[in-house]
Design a protein around this nucleic acid. Structure first.
Lengths: 200, 200, 200, 200
DNA sequence: AATGAATGAGTCTTCATTCAT
DNA sequence: AATGAATGAAGACTCATTCAT
């Protein structure tokens, strides 16, 4: 990739982030080299350090900004929905949709936790818990309303999340199934798995 | 760890494999160093090369032998079972049980595909497909027997597999829930997700 | 050797080349270590890789740049000389002179062909052929003018070249014989060997 | 190459020597590995040490036994020849013949002097001097008999030796010229170079 | 005479990071 | 904001050599 002369810092930062996401997605954090990144961005290795202080900070930047966006969008999607089953439907649709559209971010997010500094790990893990807790809370609410049985809400939530997130690993937008078809199928599977009462 | 004097090659190989699995589990393939491995095993770095030719070959050895064992055990578990729902139950129980008991192998298996040589990748991917196809076949059989609805069998199988395999990421044998409790919960979730007819 | 602060890349490269020539001359390409080279140059081992990508490339750089200089100087020396015997005299004098003054380059050039990559080998071999062909052509011209007998020109040329180049192996500028004395002796031997007609 | 079961030590030693010569010829002493040698011989690396104590000793063994054979054959060839010109002719023919028939030995002999221990180097250098001195002596004798001019005998001898030995580098027994043709051509060149009086 | 597992030092090479310009 | 030359530590891998069996 050629260097965009006179590119502003902000633009370069965006290029770096996107390139880094792709490279980590392809090779993993450890196997991604800053030389390779600089190369892809079209600048010299040293110049990267105008944008982050260490490779670790770059990773943290990528993952935390993804987690922030994720949580924020989640808030927005669920805002004002009171009915637990409606909330469940919304969560499921949102989760699949969002994860399918950011393959790289999601992958990096899930597979590189190991690479974090303990401090950074804690921050990211907390952000993730916050996101997951939203689902757990919805399930508990549904249980209180006797719309689903009394299984362990946390364990059930983990099951649903694993199932939905797993889509990223095989879904191909140009493949046999459209995003909507996948959402329909998984919506049904997830609600069934949770044993949502038929009335809904 | 101290050196086991007079250890035979076979024994050393086993030690190496176990140590490697743990190290890859903890740090990832790239971040695992052969120095660290040799250290853990209690031999010199160079001695490792009596057991594999490259780090890549070590990885392949670990993953392929796990996949072989997995498929073999799967065969054994499902042998002679004709009823599709019975087969489903057996598969689910087997999958959870096996995966929960080999945390390290499973993790390495699922997270280091990226690190393979193209040729090795293909071999491993084929082995995995073979394993997954067993579940897909069972679902199709169940559909033919009208024991479950006519959704996309492959997509459904992927959903179930992701859900079940995800257990490895949080399950702790000394934690709040026993393995049997987890199996019970997930058995219920999985069968519900697949909408197995009530008669069973 | 201490590090030359602020040394520019070009200067460092020259230092590297000179040091490498000497080390290869002394120990051979294989036995020369990049650690040793870095040490002699006064930089870190890794810094060498700002100047070449592999040890092999370093060798190629040294040998090919020597061959280029050699051929260029040869052209210059022989330019405008028509008389074959005059050309012979010029070639002989030039060859001895040039080879005696670059002991290291010559040695590396002749003794490390084995160490080349097949591709690099071909390039270098071609350059050498080009140089040798100049002598063969002169001899053929002399034969056409009946100034020397009709022996095999190529074989004769090889004989002369071996004889002249061999000087490098024992000549010592501070020794018993001066460069001019050696040139005189070998000029006579070479012309006699070729049986150049007395009239000249 | 397969292992000859029950092979006697002597036979194995010969196999080792031959294989080593070839490997050093192809890759050089430094680049020849004992692993590669063991492989070619068809035994394990450790077994080599039943035949020599160090790699250096192996090299010395090869070169010194070649030098011994060379000198011995030289003695035999020149025995009883009084006439200096006849001796010259005999030496030249012998040298070319012997060197052409032992390409590998000669190459190793000439190109690996650098790799010797100082002590071993001295021994080998002395052996070589002894061989060369025979030629120098013949030339001096010829000068005393006024059969050749009064140039520097040593320098002349070095020139002749370089010329003759150089044949090894390009001669191909299956090539355009037969060994006898080469001998004829070089005989003429060498005698001319030395300016042997026409009367012979 | 041969094996195979081990050693320990060493090889080339790559990496994240720094800093004067 | 960018360069390019440098660092120093670490990486995978290889080597000659040893030795119990």
């Amino acid at each position: 990739m050629s260097r965009t002369a006179g590119s502003s810092g902000v633009k370069t930062l965006e290029t770096i982030k996107k390139a880094a996401l792709r490279l980590i997605y392809e090779h993993g954090y450890d196997a991604m080299t800053l030389r390779g990144l600089a190369n892809k961005v079209g600048i010299q290795q040293g110049s990267l350090y105008n944008y982050f202080k260490t490779k670790q900070e770059l990773l943290f930047m990528l993952v935390s900004s993804h987690m922030e966006a994720l949580t924020e969008q989640q808030e927005k999607a669920l805002a004002g929905i009171d009915d637990p089953v409606e909330a469940l439907r919304t969560f499921i649709r949102f989760h699949i949709d969002y994860h399918i559209s950011r393959k790289h971010e999601v992958f990096v997010n899930y597979s590189e936790l190991r690479s974090f500094t303990p401090e950074n790990y804690k921050i990211i893990a907390d952000m993730r818990s916050q996101y997951e807790n939203r689902l757990i809370d919805i399930i508990i609410k549904a249980q209180k309303a006797e719309l689903v049985p009394q299984y362990d809400a946390k364990v059930a939530a983990y099951g649903i999340l694993a199932m939905l997130t797993g889509i990223c690993q095989w879904f191909n937008p140009k493949g046999r199934l459209s995003k909507e078809e996948v959402i329909t199928t998984y919506m049904s599977m997830a609600l069934s798995a949770l044993q949502v009462r038929a009335s809904h």
